[in-house]
Design a protein around this nucleic acid. Structure first.
Length: 256
DNA sequence: TAGGCCATCTGGTCCT
DNA sequence: AGGACCAGATGGCCTA
């Protein structure tokens, strides 16, 4: 609902572009018109670019061409760089979408940019809190009766930075802990099987029906995103105070 | 048809 | 000077 299905691929990459074959490059209609108007005004009595813009004129001086081409070339270069920059940005966003707990596939609507960013943020917060919970659990299991007290969590040196680790191990641990069942995302087609190196799908993580929407609305609204199993640890905000402060996040060395 | 989302253009600003 | 980054404007596409 919040994103175009084929916003990038199906849509023309240059909605208002026309091809100027003589230049071998693209002009926007707006730019072309402005260019024509400007030139037309400057050369009200002349036969400069205005004629070209009108579609007919072929008589143009060498100076006209040079001056115009300089401006055009500069503008085209700048536009091209900006286009590339935005494409790179979108590529990065696509990469982010790929690792998000959101069903992906041709029949699934792509997350919008803002949704991707919001979901990513909350996903990170959720993983952080889950990791903390796992640390506590491991401490309870292995350190409970030993020298390490139950109240003070043992030092567990986890392989830091999940950022460059596949997310599956963590997800599988969560899966076994939380006991995810077939809570399925609301999408028209069955969710694709997770790729070997893809993150867990929302259903895999135990998300409920509208996890994405809820994740997007409330920065910390993890409660509605989890199934609750009596006696089982749950990383949701209702079952535990979320240690999701910036300091918490910073406590995970992200290897940057 | 209105609203959301998006790509692109464009001018300004800052940095190297 | 040239490039990167940013934000505003514009127009197209899609959905409710």
């Amino acid at each position: 609902m919040d994103s175009d299905a084929g916003s990038n691929s199906s849509r023309s990459s240059s909605p208002d572009l026309v091809v100027d074959d003589s230049m071998g490059s693209f002009f926007s209609n707006k730019m072309f018109q402005a260019y024509c108007q400007e030139e037309g005004a400057a050369r009200a009595a002349g036969q400069g670019r205005a004629d070209r813009c009108a579609g007919g004129g072929k008589s143009k001086t060498r100076a006209d061409l040079k001056e115009g081409d300089d401006v055009q070339d500069l503008r085209l270069k700048v536009n091209g760089r900006e286009r590339k920059r935005m494409h790179d940005l979108n590529q990065a966003l696509d990469g982010l979408r790929e690792v998000m707990p959101y069903a992906q596939g041709p029949s699934v609507r792509k997350l919008s940019k803002i949704s991707t960013l919001l979901l990513a943020r909350n996903y990170i917060l959720m993983l952080s809190s889950s990791l903390e919970e796992m640390k506590k659990l491991v401490g309870d299991v292995y350190g409970g009766s030993g020298a390490q007290s139950r109240t003070s969590h043992p030092r567990i040196t986890l392989p830091a930075p999940t950022a460059h680790l596949p997310l599956h191990p963590l997800a599988q641990n969560l899966h076994s802990l939380v006991g995810s069942t077939a809570s399925v995302l609301h999408h028209p087609s069955p969710p694709p099987a997770p790729a070997p190196h893809s993150p867990p799908s929302a259903s895999y993580m135990g998300f409920h029906h509208a996890p994405v929407q809820s994740l997007l609305k409330d920065p910390l609204h993890l409660a509605s995103s989890y199934r609750h199993f009596p006696g089982m640890p749950c990383p949701c905000s209702l079952c535990q105070p979320l240690p999701t402060t910036t300091s918490t996040l910073h406590s995970f060395s992200m290897g940057k």
